[in-house]
Amino acid sequence: MSYTISPVVSDDVESVLKFLKRTFYLDEPILRAVDYCQTGNDDTHDLDEYCRHSLPGCSFQAKDEDGNLIGVLVCDRCPVVNPTDCLTALKDCKSPKYKTVIRMQIMREIIAEIWNQYPNDSELIEIKMAATDPKWRNKGVMNKLMGVIEKTARDLGVRLLRIETSSAFSAKSAESKGFKCIFSRPYTEFQFDGKPFIITEPPHLDDRIYIKELF
C-alpha cells in the first residue's frame, strides 16, 4: 500500500476540511464530549473557520495511489506569546457547544503560560490537528507526516514543535516521538461556577500540551 506526502496548498483546503469532518471532528474526545459533530452532515461552521485560519500554513497531506486523502497534519507557525486567537474565536463563535471548548482552551493557556516556559523562543510550529483514514491507521502514515513537519521546522529554523493531546492514545504517540509533556490537567479541574466545562470518557481524562525541542 503506497502513498505520497505533499504540502497542503490553497486548492486543497476544502477537501482537507471534508476529510477532517469525517475523521478528526467525529473522533476527538473534547468534541465528542460536547456533542459538537455527530455526523458528516452536521453544521461545523466554527471549527471549519478555525481550520481555514490555519490552512494551508505549513500543513501536509498523504494521498493513496488514486489521489484519495488518507492522512492530514494541520500545522501553522505561531508566536510564543499570550495568545489572543482564542478570545477572537470566542467572540465570533456561533455554536454554544464550541464556545464551551474555546473557554476551556482559554483557561488552559492562562494556566500553562507557555510563553514563560520558553522566554527565549519567539515562535513555534503548532500541530493543530492530526487525522488518518480509519483504513490506513497503524500503517505508519502519521509517523511519516510527523517526520516531514519536523524536517520542515528545522529547515525554517523553528526550534519548537507543539501539540495538544486530548486523546490518551495521542499522548502516548507524542511521547514515543520524543515530545515532552509540559502541561497536564484533568478535564474535571477546568471549572466554571464549581462545575467542569467538559467531561470526557475514559481513557481520555487529561488535557496535555507537549513540546519537542528540535535543537
Rank of each mutant, 00 (worst) to 15 (best):
M1P: 01
M1L: 13
S2K: 11
Y3K: 04
S6Q: 14
D11K: 15
D12W: 06
V13Q: 09
V13G: 02
V13R: 02
E14K: 14
S15L: 00
K21I: 04
R22I: 13
F24D: 03
L26D: 09
D27F: 14
R32V: 12
V34T: 05
D35R: 12
Q38N: 13
N41M: 11
L47T: 03
D48W: 13
E49Y: 14
C51W: 00
C51I: 03
H53R: 12
P56E: 06
C58W: 06
C58H: 04
K63F: 05
D64I: 05
D64K: 08
E65P: 00
D66G: 12
D66M: 12
I70Q: 05
I70V: 15
G71F: 07
G71M: 05
L73V: 09
D76K: 12
R77K: 11
R77V: 13
P79D: 11
P83C: 06
L87E: 14
T88Q: 12
D92K: 14
C93W: 08
C93G: 04
K97M: 14
T100W: 06
V101H: 04
R103D: 05
M104Y: 03
Q105N: 08
M107S: 07
E109A: 10
E109F: 14
E109D: 13
I110Y: 08
I111G: 05
I114V: 07
I114M: 05
N116T: 07
N116H: 14
N116E: 12
Q117P: 01
Y118H: 11
N120V: 06
S122Y: 06
I125G: 04
I125H: 01
I127M: 03
I127C: 03
K128N: 10
T132I: 10
V141P: 00
V141Y: 05
V148D: 02
V148E: 07
E150P: 05
E150G: 01
E150V: 14
T152Y: 10
A153M: 02
V158K: 01
L160W: 11
I163C: 03
T165E: 10
T165R: 02
A168Y: 14
S170Y: 03
S170I: 06
A171V: 10
E175R: 11
S176Q: 13
S176M: 10
S176K: 15
G178P: 04
F179E: 01
I182A: 03
S184P: 02
P186S: 04
Y187F: 15
E189M: 09
F190N: 03
F190M: 10
Q191P: 00
I199R: 06
E201C: 08
P203V: 12
D206G: 01
I209Y: 05
I209R: 00
Y210G: 00
F215M: 08
